[in-house]
């Protein structure tokens, strides 16, 4: 089996009868969809698509797993992730503080490529499967270390009904309601 070239040519300029026939075909198709329309409208935000688990949405840090290796900040193509230094109590020397580095993220810059999640050697970063979050002002899109550890509130989920979008053989994309609201 190998790819090959398929030389074809168009049919000749057609007669009037052909034209009439194709016109009728088009009209019949129109009538078919008029009687039996195939619409798929997502009434967002009353309905929202429940995205698959592998979806590359917002990125959250599990701080206790982070080993401060800075790999995530180094691989970020858009320089959205940066390391900051914070003071932490040193477990080995009680009463003393030590400096530690943690990543923070600027969602104004992030392009959701997922490199940081994939490069993290300890799986300290993970994606949540939603991305439709609105901010009142740009400054809120700089996440500090505290914000970075909490999954952002998914307001759409509080108000809307989740649907799953699946591919149907006859209808193309269809939406199926999801029962569990998680």
């Amino acid at each position: 089996m190998a790819p090959r070239v398929g030389l074809r040519s168009l049919e000749k300029r057609r007669t009037l009868i052909d034209g009439v026939r194709s016109n009728i075909h088009v009209l019949m198709l129109g009538v078919k969809y008029f009687v039996n329309p195939r619409r798929m409208t997502l009434v967002y935000p009353r309905e929202y698509p429940k995205l698959s688990e592998g979806y590359r949405g917002f990125i959250i840090l599990k701080k206790e797993k982070c080993i401060s290796c800075a790999a995530c900040a180094r691989i970020c193509p858009s320089a959205a992730m940066k390391m900051i230094r914070v003071q932490e109590p040193d477990p080995k020397h009680p009463g003393k503080a030590k400096m530690k580095q943690y990543p923070v993220i600027n969602y104004q810059r992030c392009i959701f490529c997922g490199y940081c999640v994939d490069v993290c050697p300890t799986e300290a970063l993970y994606h949540v499967n939603y991305h439709d979050i609105v901010y009142d002002n740009l400054a809120d899109m700089f996440w500090d270390l505290e914000t970075f550890q909490r999954e952002p509130e998914y307001k759409t989920a509080a108000e809307g009904r989740p649907v799953r979008i699946v591919i149907h053989e006859e209808l193309g994309l269809v939406k199926v309601p999801v029962e569990d609201k998680a």
């Binding site: 790819p3 070239v5 398929g6």
Partner: peptide, 22 residues
Amino acid sequence: DVRIIEPYEVYDELDFEVPVYT
């Protein structure tokens, strides 16, 4: 078509046609 002239990845193992109209 580069897929035919210089097949890359696994294109040379697949069965497909490159349509050409004149």
